[in-house]
Amino acid sequence: MSERLAVKKTYKLAIGGKFPRSESGRSYQVADSAGEFLANAAWASRKDARDAVAAARKAFPGWSGATAYNRGQVLYRVAEVMEGRRAQFVDEVARGEGLARQRAEKAVDEAIDRWVWYAGWADKIAHVVGSSNSVAGPYFDFSVPEPTGVVAVLAPQRSSLLGLVSVLAPAVVSGNTVVLAASYERPLPAITLSEVLATSDVPGGVVNVLTGRVGDTAPALASHMDVNAIDLAGAAGDTEHAHELELAAAENLKRVVRAPGAEPDWTAEPGLERITAHLETKTVWHPVGI
């Protein structure tokens, strides 16, 4: 009896709840850490980036308007589905990052646990960063955090799942919608995560995933006038590129998370910085009287 012929997967972009190919028709070869062929991934164009921004903008009112409890539930569900795909993630992380099986398992477990950690912040962050303000007059005055809007996230180039979760989850948990530029050399965990999101009650368009050259998509996102913030984690170590992106981002005063000099150790405690980086503070006043 002959061996069963495997069904090979086509890796695509994730835009607005759908999985399109790049409008450019281009793709590129993804290799594992040993240089062996892994997959053909879509090579997103600037037009794909703009389509992704439009999808993210469309999804923003619904996602930011959902209750925090609901967002927390939906994101916890993501962790559940990730757990079910654990073996696939471990395989992709091990081959892409060249990790031994045990270390890849540790990275995937940490990534899933971190997603759970962030999911829990959905209905707690307002306690920590909001305030009731004692003003000198007969007014009720309070400040609440609100999502900034559409956030472009350049995912870390090396840490393909733990790093990815560490920049994506803090952006979406508060109600932002995201256009994510995946690691160029290690995009498979991001693509798999986009499939997880599509089967986890996360509304289409909340997370849009672009694979391909960051040099193509990042400038389009950094200069896009309907993007409100950008996380330059994926440009770590590339000072010149990061500088250009920050200059482009100034055009509509995007909130910028700067690129570190080198990719950080993502196993460290994350803190709240990446959540608060994509939050606005809104202050509301109303007179008190009878």
């Binding site: 305030s131 003003v135 007059g137 509509n252 005063l253 809104k282 202050t283 509301v284 109303h286 007179p287």
Partner: peptide
Amino acid sequence: RAGVVWANTFNKFDPASPFGGYKESGY
């Protein structure tokens, strides 16, 4: 989508009350 919303009042300021903008009104 604004950093300060005054309801049934306007142009009130106080040192205890955070003030600042969304979008191109700054950060």
